[in-house]
Write a protein that binds this DNA or RNA. Structure first.
Lengths: 183, 183
DNA sequence: TTTGGATGTATCGGGGCGATATAATCAGTT
DNA sequence: AACTGATTATATCGCCCCGATACATCCAAA
């Protein structure tokens, strides 16, 4: 997931870890925040896998004689680009995708229309499932269950209902654009 | 977190892993779903730590001569009870508690009023922070940012706003009950 | 001048996840 | 009577990610 995010961001420009994390943070708006504890090891991994490469240490100093601070700038390789597309292509109705959804959405403008559709519909299906589960839980228990638990379920139900409506709008918009494109 | 959930549930009755998972699922309403891949190892860990103990294999068969299926039933020990209270007592405004919140709420009826308050207010503070971050992101970018990202932020902002309102209600209710108790 | 806050990289232990294997029970079907 | 699939039940594997922490530099304000 972090892999997807990193590869996606590096499409824009080469970056070092710290900057990646900041961009990630503003991009995902705390919908999903990654920590350095996963970022740096992942960068290493991607580098070893040849998906990203360390930029030849940019000079950019000229006036600084006492050696610029260590700063690993990474750029996307051709393999990395391929891998990104591949990750997107395989994105779909898998359960795992649930946490991924925010990241996927953040890179939608770089995602083919059909894949966008698959992702949106997959998400909707899973949220609907959760919604039904919550409805069942609320109906089943009636009065007997714990007050706080019911409150939790109520809140969860509302959230899922709202998200389904939101997804429906997004999907409708996608379809409209698809129609326009076909004309 | 799973530890808290397990110890909390075992207050009701001794249970085996599979049942714990089911109860957990209905209790948390898919707000948070634990997998067997964490459940069973955690049970082992808690047993080794002496917080739970394996019930002497219940007979309960009488008519079945061909040996009931393997089934590890666990019960809460005195140390486990202590540990549960301790975990609750230390629950508060830590960042980590964010994922924990649902689990905490699910055991609120077993939680002292002052700790409940701390948990609710801690959660509110963190959600408010996220809300402000999203507001800033939406204001800052104006028109330039990606359409889908903005949609993500819009949705996030709405959700956080709703949750803050919800938390305010819960907190107000707690305070009202506190007042009643004082009379 | 010192203090504090960004910037910047890195590691550690541990918790949780999805996938998967295995196997017995039970209900319904054919 | 045999078959089939769903449910019950425990367990392990590798991987991803997290929070905490350490360390170092740079910059601005007090």
């Amino acid at each position: 997931m972090l892999e997807l995010a990193i590869l996606g961001l590096l499409h824009e420009a080469p970056m070092h870890g710290y900057e990646l994390r900041k961009r990630l943070h503003t991009l995902l708006g705390a919908f999903r925040a990654f920590s350095y504890g996963s970022l740096y090891p992942t960068l290493r991994r991607l580098q070893r896998a040849g998906l990203i490469a360390e930029e030849a240490d940019v000079e950019e100093l000229a006036d600084r004689t006492w050696g610029r601070r260590a700063r690993r700038v990474y750029r996307l390789t051709a393999e990395g680009k391929e891998r990104f597309a591949e990750l997107l292509a395989n994105a779909g109705p898998q359960t795992w995708e649930d946490d991924c959804f925010g990241v996927h959405l953040a890179f939608f403008s770089r995602t083919p229309a059909d894949v966008r559709m698959r992702i949106l519909e997959g998400r909707r299906r899973r949220v609907e499932e959760r919604r039904e589960g919550l409805r069942a839980a609320l109906a089943r228990a009636g009065e007997q269950i714990d007050r706080y638990t019911r409150e939790l379920h109520r809140m969860g139900l509302e959230s899922t209902e709202r998200e389904v409506r939101w997804l429906n709008e997004l999907i409708a918009r996608e379809q409209a654009e698809q129609r326009d494109r076909d004309d």
